[in-house]
Design a protein around this nucleic acid. Structure first.
Length: 628
RNA sequence: GGGCUGGUAGCUCAGCUUGGAUAGAGUGCUGGACUUCUAAUCCAGUGGUCAAGGGAUCGAAGCCCUUCCGGCCCGCCA
């Protein structure tokens, strides 16, 4: 509630007025006003103008008159603007009290979109044959933040990470280890996942190109992988689990945690595929081709102009997309769960317990990670395949939008950064490629950011303990990286530039974190404890009211972010909060005013801001230090 | 060729779902503000035929159609 209370009051009153006028079927808007147009605006007059055949201004005049006669508590004035808009001015003393009181609650900003239903968010899902690069980080961070926003919106969220441990990419490094003589030990000082990705994978791929006859080894290895009992599969399991562990370290370092790891190899062995295949046949969703180019295959008919999609080859084996179908159905709880569960070998930091599926016996209790709805975070390049999965799931489950592919555009390399990797792109951005070794490693970006932040922090606090500086630098670097990944919309390509990404000024996480540090210092330096028992009328400066209003808009933005699965909305809100606070900070003093009442009032506001910002940043997985 | 997607200030982007007021940020550039609760900040200025054209509307950056430019996808690969 909070600012929403004002909006609700206005909306209800306007509805009553419409009733009195016997007007129905008008869905007008009541929304926070643009600066300079009061506090809340409505377009109601425009909509009514058609029905009543009067001009909007006249209607506005009439409505504002009616409004002031109706019962209202939070509105002090209604203005009919010459443009036709109806602008409302809040009774700020009352509204301030409401907003600041609520901002102290733990639940501030929470909304009830989910009604406590269960939802799955699957993200990360990187092939376990390489280290995460900056492109993967977009997936990881988007997924993590969407999950946080949904939790704030009263969903019970299960976070999954799908480990494709039996695909071609894994086969490639296994070939490298078993046939091309790569040592199992990475060179001194290099993480195993980086070694697999930078050296084994890239160089093995190069060898195929140099000698196509080697493809035979590759095919055989892939086949052996799918038979879980083979020696190759056991070896691959050992290798991929080591890589996975390293990948998880990268994610954990960024404050990203999961509930359960799913392994493709287990899904293949579980027999889920034959279950779902039977279902597909029963429902006539797949057809056997007796002729044409796909003769002997089972296909899904393309809708519109799309080509048919082969899901079982003429030799009887399932294609890539076929493996995704049982997993999607499993996530939605449509299939009998064939898995047992055990805790992951390493303890995940934070409060979530990390589980993994297993086909072996387990002494740990059975778990359920399915959900009423599923959100799968995948690169928009897979939109076509995801569309087919979505279509199939909609036939299986009647819940609307039960399966959602949350797509995001890729992260590319800026021309300058491509150049530093030895690629001349003629001034164009370049697609990253794991195969070609053309990517920017995620840990490396974190390290660069951290070193830079350590420097900056030292400059400001020469006397600070090294351990303290480390901690601050960690939070600032993680914040910066996360913020860069979500501040623009999901449909925008991020052209990653090493140099520009190191910026700590302007619309960045440090800007927001800095506002928090300022607030923290005021509270720390004050001789009193912030209290809500204050004179609210003393908070009347423009910059104070703007800050209060922004604080009050928290839940509205959470709702918007959750409905649209849009991390960017929360990023912008955090930025708005920081802007409002910085403006307040530069205009007004809080301490040493020689006026106890005023000081108390402003201190209360500073505290509200701080608490709200912490909660909002939490949704972005960003921690704000008390000094920086 | 078909499908998806982007095009708004020099650059990077919001605003488009739900049409209405004065199209907003950051960055860049110019100038100003630190003896002060931390200048990772603030204030002011600069900068726009909202890709182009058409349509419906009293009214379009937004909706519909066409075109242009960029990106991605379209395998019995994964």
């Amino acid at each position: 509630m909070s600012f929403k209370s004002l909006i609700d009051e206005i909306e209800n009153n306007l509805k009553k007025i419409l009733d009195d006028l016997s007007v129905t079927n008008i869905s007008f808007l009541v929304e926070p006003a643009k600066p300079g147009f009061g506090d809340v605006s409505s377009n109601i007059s425009f909509l009514l103008a058609k029905k009543l055949k009067k001009n909007p201004k006249e209607i506005g005049d009439m409505l504002s008159e009616h409004y002031m006669k109706s019962i209202h508590t939070l509105v002090s004035k209604v203005e009919s603007h010459p443009s036709g808009y109806l602008n409302f001015f809040a009774d700020w003393e009352k509204l301030t009290q409401l907003i600041l009181s609520e901002s102290n609650l733990d639940t501030f900003g929470s909304v009830d979109l989910g009604k406590n239903s269960t939802i799955i968010v699957e993200h990360t899902s990187v092939n376990p044959n390489k280290a995460l690069h900056i492109g993967h980080i977009r997936n990881v961070v988007v997924g993590d933040i969407v999950a946080r926003i949904l939790e704030k919106s009263n969903y019970k969220v299960n976070i999954l990470n799908y480990v494709d441990d039996s695909g071609l990419q894994v086969a490639d490094i296994i070939v490298g280890f078993r046939h091309f003589g790569f040592a199992q030990q990475p060179p001194e000082g290099k993480k195993f996942d980086q070694y697999c990705g930078d050296d084994v994978y890239v160089k093995t791929t190069e060898k195929y190109e140099a000698d196509p006859s080697l493809e035979e080894i590759r095919k055989n290895t892939l086949k052996e992988l799918e038979d879980g009992n083979s020696e190759t599969a056991q070896f691959a399991d050992k290798i991929t689990r080591k890589v996975l562990e390293n990948q998880l370290e990268t994610c954990w370092n960024l404050g990203v945690y999961y509930d359960c790891l799913n392994f493709e190899s287990q899904i293949i062995q579980s027999g889920l595929w034959s279950d779902i295949f039977e279902k597909l046949k029963e429902m006539n969703l797949v057809e056997f081709e007796n002729g044409g180019k796909n003769v002997g295959c089972w296909v899904i008919r393309g809708e519109n102009n799309d080509e048919d999609k082969v899901i079982v080859r003429s030799n009887g084996t399932a294609t890539y997309i076929a493996k995704d179908i049982p997993y999607a159905a499993w996530k939605l709880g449509l299939l009998k769960d064939p898995f047992n569960y055990k805790k992951y070998e390493k303890t995940q930091p934070g409060t979530r317990i990390l589980w993994q599926t297993t086909l072996a016996d387990s002494s740990d209790p059975q778990q359920n990670f399915s959900g009423e709805k599923v959100i799968t975070v995948i690169d928009s390049r897979q939109a076509r395949l995801q569309e087919i999965i979505t279509m199939l799931m909609s036939k299986f489950k009647s819940v609307e939008n039960a399966y959602v592919h949350l797509a995001y555009e890729s992260v590319t390399l800026s021309p300058a950064t491509a150049q530093t990797l030895g690629l001349n792109t003629d001034g164009k951005q370049a697609q990253m490629s794991g195969r070609k070794g053309l990517y920017v490693n995620a840990d490396a970006v974190y390290d660069l950011l951290k070193n830079k932040t350590i420097e900056e922090t030292k400059k400001r606090h020469p006397e600070m303990l090294a351990s303290e500086i480390q901690k601050i630098a960690h939070h600032v670097s993680v914040g910066t990286l996360r913020y860069e990944m979500i501040k623009q919309d999901l449909d925008k390509i991020i052209a990653f530039d090493l140099t520009k990404s190191l910026s700590l000024e302007g619309d960045t996480a440090p800007y927001i974190q800095y506002a928090h540090a300022r607030a923290s210092r005021i509270i720390e330096k004050s001789t009193r404890i912030p209290s809500i028992d204050i004179d609210f009328s003393l908070l009347s400066d423009k910059s104070e009211l703007e800050l209060i209003k922004t604080i009050g808009l928290f839940d509205i933005h959470v709702m918007n972010a959750a409905k649209n699965l849009s991390p960017k909305v929360m990023a912008r809100y955090c930025h708005d909060l920081a802007v409002a606070f910085n403006s307040f900070y530069e205009h007004l003093k809080v301490l040493d005013l020689g006026d106890e009442k005023l000081e108390n009032s402003r201190l209360c506001l500073v505290n509200s801001f701080k608490q709200t910002l912490v909660k909002a940043l939490e949704l972005l997985g960003i921690t704000a230090p008390d000094r920086m």
